[in-house]
Nucleic acid binder design. Structure first.
Lengths: 201, 201, 201, 201
DNA sequence: ATCTAATCGAGACGGTACGTCGAGTCTTCCC
DNA sequence: GGGAAGACTCGACGTACCGTCTCGATTAGAT
């Protein structure tokens, strides 16, 4: 039954189908180059050469270099930052900040910093990062936050985006400025501070 | 006698002296272009043309495009962010976040972002930014925060650096990611959220 | 029974037979494009699109773009340049030069020029043009010239190929260089000059 | 006096002057490549690499590959085809056809063919070839032909341009179609045929 | 009053990557 | 097996910006 339905619905496009192995080789090459030589030096020519793909193929599927690298970035980081449902806001904030810190402490931290840095000088990166990372992930987080608010765990007058900025902003700021070391202890203290506020209770 | 003394003291280099007006025209052109077309499109050729200077002159005094803009950054921003003493922590946080936001909202915001971005790939920029901006300003802020803590306005167990990260991190995060507009209202809400925490009181 | 006999006699290849309508659509599309946009811009993709054929079909039957266009060229021009038998050399030269000029003056002139031009940069065109146009036509002309020589109408020491070069060379030269207009009057004067030579009789 | 005048007239342009050695290296590389690999494979990348110039420099001074090669063509062939004055029409025709044939037989033959071919698809090449090569050279030849006609060595009713077409057309036709080898013997026979005509005297 | 040494504007230059385009090949499904 | 659709590799195209260089003109102090 399932087969019949799929047969009818998923009408295969005519012509040679896209070779997914090529897509993956391109993304892998992009990711490797991003870590090895940085965003600016991860050229499309190099990606093409290393992946064994042609530049034409790259540009058929991505509008520019930035899009390729962001795509690779997203594909790499998405599984490393799964969205878990936890029962209370304390748990939620603490868990996510520690999880995110753990990612930023590894080699992916440099990746994150490189992407955000590139976004400052490249409009393509900026919009790709927004539409492929920030926007979709925020949409997912929003439903959780709405539940917390409905349960009275989060003040009514707080803007969701801003809540997330307060959570993740300090971590990314530290990642990029590096005035002190990024540690799990920092993340825990941060969670506490963010939850309770600067004013004494 | 006079000559000899001046010779010894000032040790004037032979040849035509540097024309300071050119330096200022270059910095101004760089800032203007940054504001108008963004970092990537603020090309050295454009800076040269607009300032009436030659590219050779630019590269004689700065190693690259980023250096020009960082130079402009320090010169422009330092006077715009004076440190004011206010009596309560609420006032302090609100005042400083709004003041900083006002700076970031203008063309200097791009400048700030560009410097932090450059720091991700350039160790010199990184340490220069730390030692000429972050560290000295944090040292000044620290004395204020210590007073607030002594007066019981700030919990004892909060790390000073982290307090500042929680304040400025969200703003800089928003500056660089730009998922929503940076406004004074955002800054006020942020101050409120940071002071009271995410948990309901 | 019928089936068996046909099978044996015609030795029909297995599978779907070649669709001759496709061949003609391809040649027509190639010819049209050749005249409209010239040899260089008559791309295979455009031929495929206009003819409704796929590129694979084109490359199954012709080794390359040049072959397609030459094939089209020959098919178009052969009926337009029939070989007529005339009794005297004067008539022969005058008739053929005028007939050829008439062809070159129309849109087929650009076609001819395009093919010869393409032959300069494309070995495939060169040999195709020689084997499909020059060689077979010269073979036919040769028998006529031999008869004229036998009748004493053409000096014995003249090389046949060279006679044809002297006849057609000037026309093609003018076609390609275009320093003056190609006209029937030009052809008539040319015939006279070629027949009588430059020296006064 | 002379100095004063030159001082006033030849006012040097500001900025770094064009490096003529680069221009010559580019033209030489273009010619060499043309000879070695043909027009189609004489790519701009190859010219840049071989000449040691950058592609940007090539495209700063020439609009495209064809222009580079035509420029080289004129500079190369002009000194190789000097115009000599000879006393009789026979001598004149024989000498010039042999001289021209000698040029076409060498590597410059491909050059000539390539330029005429390029002119078929490129209006700029067409007019440049006419104005920089055909027109000025024909003007020079015309005075010679006028003298021959005045001396009764050339029939009165022959058009000068057509006389030259009859002389050079066959050679260029052979050059481009290459149905037989181009030799000095061919040139001599051609001269004889052109002078005496196809009809027996 | 020259001489020397540096600055400056103009712009040519080598280099590197960009993003595009066409040729010719290969892969899938349909008939 | 023939054919349409279209993905793919290869390689050249022409453009843009970077940072360097080479000029002549300029501007001072030194002789």
């Amino acid at each position: 039954m399932q087969n019949v339905i799929e047969e009818g619905l998923l009408h295969r496009a005519p012509g040679r189908p896209r070779d997914n192995a090529v897509r993956e080789r391109i993304l892998k090459a992009g990711l490797d180059l991003l870590q090895e030589v940085g965003f600016a030096n991860a050229t499309c020519d190099a990606i093409a050469e290393r992946s064994g793909a042609s530049k034409a193929t790259i540009y058929r599927w991505w509008p520019n270099k930035a899009a390729v690298l962001i795509d690779a970035f997203v594909e790499r980081l998405t599984p490393e930052l799964p969205i878990h449902d936890v029962s209370t806001l304390e748990e939620y904030v603490t868990f996510n900040l520690k999880q995110f810190t753990r990612v930023l402490m590894g080699s992916n931290g440099r990746l994150f910093a490189a992407v955000i840095a590139a976004a400052q000088t490249d409009q393509d990166v900026q919009s790709a990062f927004l539409s492929h990372w920030i926007k979709p992930r925020r949409a997912l987080f929003r439903t959780l936050l709405e539940r917390y608010r409905a349960e009275g765990l989060l003040p009514d007058n707080y803007d969701f985006d801003q809540v997330l900025d307060v959570m993740y902003g300090p971590l990314l700021f530290l990642l990029m400025v590096r005035h002190v070391e990024l540690t799990l202890a920092y993340a825990e203290n941060l969670a506490n501070m963010v939850l309770n506020g600067l004013l004494p209770r």
